Amino acid sequence: MDGDEGGVRSVLRAIDLIGLFTEHRRMWSIRELTEASGLAKTTVIRLVTTCEQRGLLWTREDGQVTIGPGLLRWAKLGHAAWQLSEPVRQVMRELATQCGETVNIYVRSSTARVCVAQHEGPQHIRHVVRVGDELPLWAGAAAKVLLIGAESTVVDRVAALSPHGKEFADELRKQAGLAAVDGHAVSHGERELGASGIAAPVVDREGRIIAALALGGPTTRFTDERVADFVTAVVTSAQWISRLGLDPAL
């Protein structure tokens, strides 16, 4: 058992190490990786070497470590697995055109939500979330929708990660409950000041919530009158996507 736990811990450390690489930070030295990860230098060197053997990391001649070519195959696989059908993308395009705001689809991943699809709105000033971005579940309209029916332990963990502390769990349950009754959720400035959102559930053939369809943009454009129209459009679009299905990934 100890060996199994040690192996799992090493895998998690390797994943966390790779997670340090972003579009804005593509190169790291061993010293920088050690400082950022909080791991011992010998551990970082061992993890980098192991990842290099599988092509997940790459050490350049100048000693800088970057993402390895082995991830290209994984990236292609991930894109194919989460590629939405054209009819679903058409629904997203029409919603973005109708409302003039950016449309995203989020799924719940443990205690976070991940943007898996997007169609940008036509406005020059818009709320920027990129496909693949991981956002908290303690704030935002999509988060409320994705917490509908969530296990109590999940809600407790989400609350503990929030700036409000574990006592926020009851409020999260209340918000999710209201979203379940209303069939949608609305948020203003919860995660980011000046940003608003509206979300509705996307369900599978058994009626289980598998994703949240969200409309997001600057709060200044989300007036009470427009929000009422947006809600109708988002809910209708989410129902269409539920009928079409989110295959192949979901």
Rank of each mutant, 00 (worst) to 15 (best):
residue 54 R to V: 15
residue 94 E to H: 12
residue 74 W to H: 11
residue 192 E to L: 08
residue 191 R to E: 14
residue 104 N to H: 15
residue 214 A to W: 15
residue 115 C to K: 00
residue 207 G to Q: 08
residue 190 E to V: 14
residue 57 L to D: 06
residue 163 P to F: 12
residue 151 E to K: 09
residue 63 G to T: 00
residue 44 V to S: 04
residue 88 V to I: 12
residue 121 G to Q: 06
residue 233 A to H: 06
residue 169 A to E: 05
residue 157 R to N: 14
residue 103 V to K: 02
residue 22 T to Y: 06
residue 202 V to P: 06
residue 135 L to K: 02
residue 219 T to H: 13
residue 237 S to R: 13
residue 30 I to A: 05
residue 135 L to A: 05
residue 233 A to E: 08
residue 182 D to G: 11
residue 24 H to G: 10
residue 71 L to R: 04
residue 92 M to N: 03
residue 222 F to E: 13
residue 149 G to L: 04
residue 68 G to I: 05
residue 50 T to D: 15
residue 54 R to S: 13
residue 236 T to Q: 13
residue 125 I to R: 09
residue 27 M to F: 11
residue 244 L to S: 11
residue 200 A to T: 01
residue 64 Q to M: 11
residue 228 A to L: 10
residue 62 D to I: 14
residue 66 T to V: 14
residue 70 G to W: 02
residue 231 V to H: 08
residue 174 K to P: 04
residue 223 T to G: 01
residue 191 R to K: 08
residue 145 V to P: 02
residue 219 T to W: 14
residue 11 V to D: 00
residue 183 G to R: 01
residue 231 V to G: 09
residue 154 V to E: 05
residue 129 V to D: 00
residue 197 G to F: 04
residue 74 W to G: 09
residue 9 R to N: 06
residue 108 R to F: 08
residue 122 P to R: 01
residue 150 A to Y: 03
residue 246 L to H: 03
residue 44 V to K: 03
residue 30 I to Q: 05
residue 1 M to K: 05
residue 111 T to F: 04
residue 249 A to P: 00
residue 147 L to S: 02
residue 169 A to F: 09
residue 159 A to V: 11
residue 61 E to P: 02
residue 93 R to W: 01
residue 34 T to N: 03
residue 48 V to A: 10
residue 190 E to Y: 12
residue 194 G to I: 05
residue 133 D to R: 01
residue 32 E to Y: 02
residue 182 D to S: 13
residue 135 L to Q: 07
residue 198 I to R: 04
residue 26 R to V: 04
residue 52 E to L: 02
residue 167 E to K: 14
residue 39 L to P: 07
residue 147 L to M: 08
residue 201 P to F: 10
residue 14 A to K: 14
residue 31 R to L: 09
residue 55 G to I: 13
residue 138 W to C: 01
residue 248 P to L: 07
residue 216 G to M: 13
residue 64 Q to D: 06
residue 192 E to P: 01
residue 224 D to C: 03
residue 150 A to L: 05
residue 200 A to D: 02
residue 45 I to K: 15
residue 115 C to T: 03
residue 130 R to T: 11
residue 250 L to I: 01
residue 130 R to G: 01
residue 237 S to I: 15
residue 227 V to C: 15
residue 42 T to Q: 14
residue 139 A to P: 09
residue 225 E to M: 06
residue 223 T to M: 00
residue 201 P to D: 09
residue 150 A to F: 04
residue 131 V to M: 02
residue 15 I to A: 07
residue 96 A to L: 03
residue 32 E to Q: 11
residue 216 G to Y: 03
residue 140 G to P: 05
residue 184 H to T: 08
residue 204 D to V: 07
residue 76 K to T: 15
residue 127 H to P: 07
residue 123 Q to W: 05
residue 57 L to T: 12
residue 161 L to S: 14
residue 33 L to P: 00
residue 73 R to H: 11
residue 133 D to Y: 06
residue 220 T to L: 15
residue 57 L to Q: 08
residue 239 Q to R: 14
residue 77 L to G: 02
residue 169 A to C: 05
residue 29 S to D: 00
residue 158 V to H: 08
residue 115 C to P: 05
residue 23 E to G: 15
residue 107 V to G: 07
residue 184 H to P: 08
residue 144 K to C: 10
residue 55 G to V: 11
residue 71 L to S: 07
residue 56 L to R: 09
residue 175 Q to L: 14
residue 102 T to K: 04
residue 35 E to T: 10
residue 17 L to E: 06
residue 165 G to R: 10
residue 201 P to W: 09
